[in-house]
């Protein structure tokens, strides 16, 4: 499995600019990773570049299908706080 971009992507271009394998392109509704070109940045960098710059939690999945940046890991907002605001209709 290669890395993958989910529909949480906000199309900010950041990952495409930093991918060393040029594996990322503009898709129909969000950016997409070409599985044939993606090598998880192995041999290039210690960490996958798309996952290192993406600003959206849950938008990038690693080769095991796990979120590289799980909820709360980038913003510091506890997921339960988000859930509470969603329940209140604020978010």
């Amino acid at each position: 499995m290669s890395y993958e971009i989910t529909n949480l992507c906000v199309n900010c271009h950041a990952c495409m600019d930093v991918c060393p394998s040029e594996a990322i392109s503009v898709g129909l509704s969000q950016f997409v990773i070409n599985p044939k070109a993606c090598n998880h940045c192995e041999g290039d960098y210690a960490h996958a570049q798309c996952g290192s710059i993406c600003p959206v939690e849950g938008a990038i999945l690693d080769e095991f299908g796990e979120a590289v940046n799980p909820a709360g890991s980038l913003t510091g907002i506890p997921p339960e706080r988000v859930a509470q605001l969603v329940a209140e209709g604020i978010l």
Partner: peptide, 14 residues
């Protein structure tokens, strides 16, 4: 210029 290289606590990219 959609990409950013930092996160600020007053910004939400979504």
């Amino acid at each position: 210029a959609p990409a950013c290289n930092i996160q600020c606590n007053y910004c939400n990219r979504k």
